[in-house]
Design a binder for these strands. Structure first.
Lengths: 214, 214
DNA sequence: TTCATTTATTGAACTTGTTCAATGTTTTTA
DNA sequence: TAAAAACATTGAACAAGTTCAATAAATGAA
């Protein structure tokens, strides 16, 4: 059957409904965290809307209130801040199976300080605040799911914080390509530098040094 | 009545049960986040044990599994990591009304990479993993409480991450004393430097520059 | 109160990372 | 396919931050 599936994918230019396939990834993701009954799973996933987005467009801009939480099913996003001097700091990247939102703006309903931008043509499943509150109120397991996921994200950020406090940029770059080989291949060095908190020129020098030492 | 209360405090050398006063602070803290019935509040707070700790002793050391989550009612703690070269990175400080744990070790039950140390004589209310699971299972509001608190903590860490990526050490120091004036007064410059991710010598030079410019 | 320990300051030499400008390379788009 | 735009590399001068060593000041324990 793999041939048929390939043909299906090749022929699909985004002209017919693929929502069913889209939520498949989300369902799998949820199942990896908590057990839900079929009904709970269907009810929860039906709250999401599929959205297709062209590269270099924005899901959120600074100053807007973030009205969604998104689950990426295709493509790559970056969540970043622009400081007073115009420099960009990337908070995180999100590829397939990752969630994106400005959790601060989403929960407080205050204007966001962040940008969320697509780097490739992407697809994302979006849930509104109202529907998420509905889910929390009606499915206690969903409350647990998001508590556990937020904890995990927090632990990852704690590790990154410690690394940023203790390691040189060169070491952080090596850690990055080791930890996220798939991301590394899909990102420009400009993006990686903004994530590591260094200038792209310096990243270039780091790469040169690594390359000539091997 | 204020005189009587003062006398009571003066006479109490830790020799009689003050658990009741201790959980008062916790109850207030919880009420600020979510509404609980009296029974829920009593049931939940009864899961905590009060612990008095001398300064410079450890609540957790690297390599141990973190078996508690703690609510600080008195004193000041620091949660930190020691890297390969022996340098300390402070993840956060906790004073009255703050929570302390290694959330990674506590949830995964794997050895911690962190130290939790008292900097003053302190008191803390501790809850075990089993009792916390019990609370989650029996009080859905508690699940929500910790989801919301973890979200807030995460937002704060995201801001700190962005600041660390974009600001100079001098600016971060000024931000720190503005944001946490009470902490600033109770901490040595060694501690603050380890939090900011700089050497204490350099912090000293920053302080000198600030002082002479005023 | 005194001695030992910890904390803070300062300077000099050094390392890490930035900025700016010039040049080359790759990718997009018309 | 050509031109434009975005991305990557390199060097030189500079700024930010570290390290080490010496000294002073503050704190804690006997």
């Amino acid at each position: 059957m793999p041939l048929n599936i390939s043909l299906l994918l090749i022929c699909n230019n985004g002209n017919f409904d693929t929502t069913h396939d889209m939520t498949e990834l989300l369902k799998q993701h949820i199942s990896n965290h908590i057990p839900l009954t079929n009904k709970e799973m269907e009810d929860f996933c039906s709250l999401f809307q599929n959205k297709t987005i062209k590269r270099k467009s924005f899901l959120l801009r600074e100053g807007e209130v973030c009205k969604f939480e998104g689950f990426v099913t295709k493509g790559i996003f970056r969540v970043y801040h622009i400081d007073k001097s115009g420099a960009e700091q990337i908070l995180y990247f999100a590829i397939e199976n990752w969630w994106i939102t400005d959790i601060d703006s989403f929960t407080t309903e205050r204007p966001s300080q962040l940008f969320i931008e697509e780097l490739e043509d992407s697809e994302v499943l979006l849930i509104s605040k109202k529907d998420k509150e509905f889910a929390y109120a009606n499915f206690p397991k969903i409350e647990k799911l998001f508590r556990v996921m937020t904890q995990k994200t927090h632990v990852a950020l704690q590790r990154r914080m410690i690394d940023n406090l203790s390691k040189t940029a060169g070491q952080r770059y090596l850690d990055f390509i080791e930890k996220y080989p798939q991301l590394h291949q899909r990102l420009s060095n400009l993006q990686i530098a903004a994530y590591l908190g260094i200038s792209h020129e310096f990243l270039s020098k780091i790469r040169n040094k690594i390359a000539t030492r091997k």
